[in-house]
Simulated scan of single mutants.
Amino acid sequence: MNSTGRDIMRQSTIIAAAVFMIIGAAVGGGAFGGESVTELQNGALSAEGSYLAPAGPAFGIWTLIYLGLAAYTVWQALPAQRDSSRQRAIGWWVAGSMVLNGLWLVTARYLNLVATVIVIAALLAVLARIIVLLGRDRASGLVDLTLFDGVMGLHFGWVTIATVANTAAWLTQTVPAGLGEQADAWGVAVLVVVAVIGAASALVTRRLAPALATSWGLVWAAIGRLSGEPESTPIGITALIVAAIILVAGVIGLLRARRAAR
């Protein structure tokens, strides 16, 4: 197959992956009947499912991410994008992220929490790969910057905190009751690790979008712990501090990127 044929196959695969993601989201989300996402797995995936789960309004970011992915799918299908070096390097990975995105909701509905953790961890790894690859080839314009760097960055940043919450939900359902009594200490410890990884990622990748999405999730996790259930003032305050650290790191990374570009 020549390069044009491979490019058309890539474009078609991304469209198919986007369709699968939408269908998976509809089926997993209960659009065709059944429980909502917050009711799945005995409520483990709801805003009250663990000490690290963001409050309900945080999940509104999915609307922005899905709209961005839909816009990207249309844009990448244009003839002008067929032989783009960025599309060739990253398009297949984006298709994989869409498949895993839709698969997570199907897994949450029909399988178990362990399976959801495996799928979302795989999604996080694929998105991390996309962010690394984006750093090797600068955006060619505003649309490229928005639909590649912006959308993929938000997806990566949100899935980062979603992976933490998903894993916490699984552990909450499985750990002995004695360890559950130490939830504050465990929650704070995990958030410290998130701060280190999130700040390092922002400084190394020099991107603001992932930091914005992760901080968004952390702020809503703090709101959930300070004003909702399960309540935890130590975790809530720590989440706010970590959100600020990651956001500042993201701004510093962006400023460094702009200075290097000059």
Rank of each mutant, 00 (worst) to 15 (best):
G33M: 07
V143Y: 08
A209V: 10
G5F: 05
V192C: 10
T116L: 09
W62V: 07
A17F: 01
A71G: 14
S36C: 05
D149N: 11
R258H: 14
E35M: 08
A125G: 01
G34I: 12
L212F: 08
D83M: 09
I23R: 01
G28D: 10
G43K: 03
L226D: 12
W186G: 12
A47C: 08
Q182G: 04
N42C: 10
D7L: 04
G250F: 13
G178P: 06
A128Y: 12
T233I: 14
T172V: 08
A200C: 12
P230Y: 11
A44V: 14
N112I: 00
N42V: 05
A95L: 10
G28M: 10
V204K: 02
A221D: 10
A125V: 14
Q87E: 14
L105Q: 08
T4C: 00
L254V: 07
A71N: 05
S46L: 13
A89P: 00
V119T: 14
G68F: 01
G49V: 03
T214W: 02
V190M: 14
G30Y: 09
E39A: 13
A244K: 00
I252F: 11
T174Y: 04
R136D: 12
W104A: 10
A202Y: 09
Y72W: 15
G5E: 13
L78P: 07
A243W: 09
T238N: 10
L203V: 14
V126W: 01
A177H: 12
N42Q: 15
G91I: 02
V251D: 10
